[in-house]
Design a protein around this nucleic acid. Structure first.
Lengths: 155, 155
DNA sequence: ATCCTTGCAAAGCATTTGCAGTCAC
DNA sequence: GTGACTGCAAATGCTTTGCAAGGAT
């Protein structure tokens, strides 16, 4: 980082972060995983495996869809990406690892990040005894998720 | 309903509610759909299609898994059930149509309802300009979802 | 040198579809 | 009687797996 807080070489920073995270979790650093990670970071959409595949293919033409799936699994396991569920259609992947909220389009399945600041105390505000009560019942609370659902304009 | 607010024949009430909802949405009332709906109402778990199938099969041995899927689709379309997504494993179904929150076990995929009262103003509390801002960008907000995630005790 | 990862093809799981016979209205 | 629904089997879409060849440490 320089005095402006901007990395002079964001690609290299990402690479060393990735290498570290992968090694920490017992995975090897490979160019396929690096390319998948870079692409996830370059987009604000939350792409599907197929979307990752067709983009990364432009850089590494020999990459296979199976390798993309395995790379995404490694990234999730290494804690640098998250898998987002959907009722219909394929899973989507997110590499913003700070807690944040999503908007989901029920028509297209697309997901975007919300700019709204994450409120760590939201569950307590909803019900001060909620987490305590769940833990007492043996459920270990690790997080909460909130998403706004609706429809994007017709395209 | 009697003076205690308890239906003397809950099964019949469910049936007429279901018949009405299905007809309203252009579907026919069938015993397969009724059996699926009754089972969804009888459980606080949110079963998968396969779980619905194996239970309803005890009442209607000839029912097929495809019919269960079609019945669940009809119930969702008629607005008397909801499909819940999950990152791994099959979808789960919920027939509580009032807004409420969920707890999800990351290990088993199981989902339960939270007793916490639903707060219709939660998004506004999080950010008073959020919904307005999304609508201005052409996104039509229809609802929000919140779930607590974590782990049930080892079984 | 060792063990992990890749790319391919085949398998797997959840869900949907096509269709002949059956049922609801 | 008509059109929708059922049950079966086959097809589909997304994802995972097995394996021989290649790559990372």
């Amino acid at each position: 980082m320089n005095e402006l807080g901007v990395s002079p070489n964001p690609g290299q920073d990402l690479d060393s972060q990735l290498r570290h995270a992968l090694e920490e979790a017992g995975w090897r650093y490979t160019r396929q995983r690096a390319a998948v990670y870079q692409f996830l970071h370059s987009t604000t959409e939350h792409p599907t495996a197929e979307e990752v595949f067709s983009t990364v293919r432009q850089t590494i033409p020999s990459i296979s869809l199976a390798t993309v799936y395995k790379a995404l699994e490694a990234l999730v396991d290494a804690g640098v990406a998250a898998k987002l569920s959907s009722t219909d259609g394929p899973a989507r992947y997110d590499c913003r690892m700070d807690s944040h909220y999503h908007v989901r389009c029920l028509q297209t399945g697309r997901i975007h990040d919300l700019p709204t600041p994450f409120d760590p105390a939201l569950l307590d505000k909803l019900d001060p005894k909620l987490v305590e009560s769940l833990e007492r019942q043996g459920f270990h609370v690790t997080a909460y998720r909130l998403e706004v659902v609706g429809y994007f304009p017709e395209k």
